[in-house]
């Protein structure tokens, strides 16, 4: 069965500094020493977990929104499933999946994807629904085919809403993915768990936690930038 990883002692790399042995609030020397071996790999793993979850979640939610845009009756069932996945406490959802997919990264990704669906679906669909009727009418009347209308008109016009959804989903997943170390020992959750189990080793806890927060802020800022680039028309107002 799953459970917390076995307790570890505060890593002792030769002469541990006084700061580390005292378990002071933050020891820069420890961070420096363990950056390459622990923190950086954990950060990259975390980023990978997040990217995979958001990417797959987006593909599913986008496809569902494309269908729901025309077939209204699809909206409710999908929203319901999404909402259910979204509201199950993360630890419980992980545990529910373990019997099927084991203590693996697959389990982690499935759960993380589950959390993105509702947000991404709702936002993408709202983006489609906000496309003005007269714009669609003009597009049809000018002889654009269904697929051309989707990719040239509806998707570009839904981009602000889609990007807003991606921002929320990404930040949510970055935060939730720390809990994933409970199942699969990777990502920034891994050093956090280890720190908690070694009598709450403050430096490692703050360093890893701080990295998770920084990653979330950075990702959000990056997505804002992307949004500006892909929707130049949304910013300029009449002068």
């Amino acid at each position: 069965m799953s459970g917390p990883p076995p307790p570890v002692v505060i890593p002792n790399f030769g002469g541990a500094s006084k700061c580390v042995t005292n378990n002071d609030l933050f020891c820069a020397d420890w961070v420096q020493h363990n950056w390459g071996s622990t923190l950086q790999p954990a950060l990259l793993e975390h980023l990978r977990l997040t990217l995979i979850a958001v990417a797959i979640g987006f593909v599913i939610a986008f496809a569902a929104a494309v269908v729901a845009r025309r077939l209204r009756f699809v909206e409710h069932p999908f929203t319901l499933v999404g909402a259910l996945l979204y509201t199950i406490p993360s630890i419980a959802l992980f545990q529910l999946l373990v019997p099927f997919t084991g203590l693996t990264e697959t389990t982690v990704e499935i759960a993380l994807i589950g959390y993105t669906l509702l947000i991404l679906f709702r936002n993408t669909l709202a983006g489609f629904q906000a496309v003005p009727e007269d714009v669609l009418e003009a597009a049809r009347g000018m002889g654009l085919r269904g697929r051309e209308i989707l990719w040239r008109i509806e998707v570009p016009l839904a981009l602000p809403a889609i990007m807003a959804g991606l921002r929320i989903a990404t930040v949510t997943v970055i935060s939730l993915a720390t809990v994933a170390a409970f199942i699969d020992d990777e990502g920034l959750g891994s050093p956090i768990f280890r720190a908690i189990q070694s009598n709450v080793f403050k430096t490692e806890l703050f360093a890893a936690g701080g990295l998770a927060v920084a990653l979330a802020l950075f990702a959000d800022a990056f997505l804002v930038l992307v949004q500006r680039l892909v929707t130049p028309w949304a910013r300029r107002e009449r002068t």
Binding site: P132, V135, E137, A138, I153, W233
Partner: peptide, 8 residues
């Protein structure tokens, strides 16, 4: 309603 494409 004209229906110009706002993103173009």
């Amino acid at each position: 309603q004209i229906g110009l494409f706002p993103h173009m």
